[in-house]
Simulated assay, not measured.
Amino acid sequence: MTTSNELRLLPWTGPDGKPCFLSTDDNGGHMSRLADNMESVQLGMATDLLGQALDILAEADTDPDDLRLLTKDLTGALRDTLRVATSRGHRLDSRSTDHRFR
């Protein structure tokens, strides 16, 4: 089993909004694959949203309500993207540490 500093930050939160973590030695296991797929979906949605944002911001007469909704959606996408980056960064750090001591 993984040590506490090797827990994987999952790309979703619990019902109380707190981070969820996965402890496993099987990177190809069901929960790891589910997390990988969710990260891929989140990053794809962020990419699509960025394109939409660029289109909306290019319009001279964008409605303020549309801008508020865009801001809300971009904030959520940024939160998800940062969680994915943090999770992947931690996993890269633990892998590079493992290789130095082998």
Rank of each mutant, 00 (worst) to 15 (best):
D65S: 05
S40K: 10
N37F: 02
L54M: 12
D36K: 10
I56V: 15
N37A: 10
T2S: 15
L7K: 14
P15Y: 10
M1T: 15
A35F: 04
D80G: 06
S94Q: 09
F21W: 07
R8H: 06
K18M: 13
G76I: 01
M31V: 08
D25V: 12
D16I: 06
T2N: 13
T2C: 08
R79M: 04
L43M: 14
D80A: 14
D66G: 09
P11W: 02
D80C: 04
S23G: 15
T75D: 06
A35V: 05
L69D: 12
P15I: 12
D93F: 13
L54S: 10
F21S: 00
L50R: 15
G17M: 06
L69K: 15
R91A: 15
H99S: 05
S32F: 11
G44C: 04
L69F: 06
G29H: 12
D93C: 04
R100Y: 03
T13K: 07
T2A: 12
H99C: 06
R100N: 08
T3P: 07
A58M: 03
E59N: 01
T86Y: 01
R79N: 07
T62N: 01
D65T: 03
R83I: 11
R83H: 07
L7E: 08
P19Y: 01
A35M: 08
